[in-house]
Each structure stands twice: as C-alpha cells, then as structure tokens.
Simulated scan of single mutants.
Amino acid sequence: MSSRSGAPNLVAGVDEVGRGPLAGPVVAAAVILDDTRPIEGLADSKVLTPRRREELSILIKGCALCWALGRAEVEEIDRLNILQASLLAMQRAVMALTLEPDLVLVDGNQAPRLTCPVTTVIRGDATIPSISAASILAKVARDAEMCDLDRRYPGYEFSLHKGYPTRAHIEALQRQGVSPIHRRSFGPVRRAITNMTEHNSM
C-alpha cells in the first residue's frame, strides 16, 4: 500500500486503557511501527504479565518510528462521560505523534475525530501489532501513574488494583471517603459520597 507520493503509508495503531476504573485518568497511546524492525511477542496488554509489558514497552519505544501518549483527566471524564473522554485521549495521542499517519487503526468500534482516515478494529489489540503496541504503552504508563498516586493518596491501594472497582477498593471508599482522583460520575463513587454525606449529617 502506497500513498499518493509513492512513499509507504504510515499506519498508526491506537488504544486506550482505563475506562473501567473508579479513579485516575484514561490514558491512550498511538504507535507507528517500523516494518523493518519487527517486535516479537506483541499482544493485547491484558494477557501479558507486568514484567513482559515493561520489557515490550522498552522495545516499542526503541524500535517504533514514533509513539505518543494522550490522556483525559478525571475532571474531563466526569464532565464528558468516559466514552467521550476516551476518544479525546486517543485524539490527543495521535495529534502528539511526530509523524502524521496516513491511516489510524483504533481498537474497538468507536473512533476519535481526526483529520486523517480512521478504521476501527474489534479486538484489534489482539490482532494488529501496532494496536497491541499502543495497548502496551498505555497500560504501562497508566499503571506507573497509579502507583505514584498510591503514594500520594495512601489507603486505597491504587498500586494493587489501579483504580478498578475491586472489593478492597470499594471498602476503602466506604472507609476513607472519596479522594480528589476519584471519578464522581461513577456509581460506586457517587454512593460513597452520598453515604459520607448522610453519615456526617447524623
């Protein structure tokens, strides 16, 4: 496949991480791989061990033609809703690339608004190497940030569950209340706010 100029098309893979958590940002990555430097072992980040994700993240950053991260903050998630915030994070990741892609392949069935052609791919993180690479970079970056936030907001165990609604996380919300990085538009967080307000008014 060639562009009108005769040069090979630049195809970017895009994926996001962090739709389901109750806390923290949603993070997206965009990656344009170098066909002359293939990376063995790329896969959906969810099926890889943390150590393997870290190893592949280093390889991706060293071998890709370019890569970039994008994000949407908790305030944007609460204001826009998680779907629109995820699309915004993906848009920001693509716009941050140092090379302009001729085509963007996005995991899932929803595409961000971009100036270049976009194709969605169901389960693309498991089948398209560039999307797999993006899912790995996004996952590694977000996990590292949640570990940092665990130190800033102790007691919630963000380093263990990364903000997802585990039993321990829900219990911490009920015990400690809501932190500044919790998504107030999410049901369990709203209920924790209501319970705390009712308790304080008694």
Rank of each mutant, 00 (worst) to 15 (best):
P25G: 11
H169R: 11
K61T: 06
M202R: 14
H199Q: 08
H161N: 07
V121P: 02
T194A: 15
S179C: 01
M196P: 03
D125K: 06
P101H: 05
R51Y: 01
L69C: 08
K139S: 07
R51P: 03
L105N: 00
V118P: 01
L103Q: 09
E76Y: 05
V104P: 00
I60R: 03
N195Q: 15
A93K: 10
D143Q: 11
D102E: 12
I131Q: 10
L65H: 06
S57F: 05
I128T: 12
Q110C: 09
T194M: 15
F158D: 03
A85S: 08
G62V: 09
A141E: 12
T115F: 00
I82R: 10
G124T: 06
V31C: 10
M196A: 15
R19I: 00
P117H: 11
V140L: 08
Y153R: 01
D15Y: 13
M196F: 13
I122N: 09
D150W: 04
E54W: 04
T36W: 03
A89W: 10
A111Q: 15
G13D: 08
G163S: 04
H169I: 00
Q176H: 14
H161R: 07
T120C: 11
R53F: 01
W67R: 14
L56Q: 08
A7S: 15
Y156C: 03
R151A: 11
P101Q: 01
I131V: 09
G177C: 06
V121H: 11
E40A: 04
L149A: 04
V189H: 02
V189A: 00
L99N: 11
V104M: 07
M1N: 13
Q176E: 11
L42W: 09
R123D: 12
E171S: 15
Q110Y: 13
C147P: 08
I39P: 08
T194H: 15
I122T: 14
K162Q: 02
D78N: 14
A29G: 13
G62I: 09
E40D: 13
R51G: 01
A43Y: 05
A29Q: 08
S57A: 08
E54T: 11
S45H: 02
S185G: 10
N109S: 06
M95V: 10
G18I: 01
T98Y: 02
T115H: 10
E76L: 05
R113N: 00
A89I: 14
P165R: 08
V17F: 00
L87K: 03
L105A: 08
A85N: 09
Q91I: 11
Y156T: 01
D15L: 04
T49P: 13
S2N: 12
S135C: 05
Y153Q: 04
F186V: 09
A89T: 12
T197A: 15
R152N: 04
T166K: 01
L99G: 10
A141I: 14
Q91V: 04
D150V: 08
D148N: 01
I181E: 03
G20I: 00
A68W: 07
L160Y: 13
R4T: 08
G124I: 13
G108E: 02
G108I: 05
V178Q: 05
S179W: 07
P188M: 06
I77K: 04
E16K: 04
Q84V: 02
L137M: 14
D35I: 12
M202L: 12
A93S: 11
V47S: 12
E76C: 11
K162T: 06
L33T: 04
K61C: 07
V140D: 08
L160S: 14
I193Y: 09
P25W: 13
R167N: 06
L88W: 14
I82E: 10
